[in-house]
Amino acid sequence: MAKVIFDSERCKGCELCVSVCPRGIIRMSNTLNSQGYHSAEVVEQDKCISCAFCARICPDTVIEVYRETKGKVS
């Protein structure tokens, strides 16, 4: 299941998220969104560590981040 969800329509392709991802898994898509930007995306969701650096630096609130709760001691 996806840990990081991009609302690609809001993305302006600034690439700030790409610059801060510690796993280097964010890339710019080949397609354009309706604003005419190449939006950011993550394909390898399993490599995401849910650090939310991308979401923190995103100026356009494009990104939602989730974390596995399974096996977690409550």
Binding site: M1, A52, T61, I63, E64, V65, R67, E68, T69
Partner: peptide
Amino acid sequence: MEQVFGRPKALSEKRL
């Protein structure tokens, strides 16, 4: 899955 990051309530949905 628990959300660790999302839009704050005080921020509107309007695109900047």
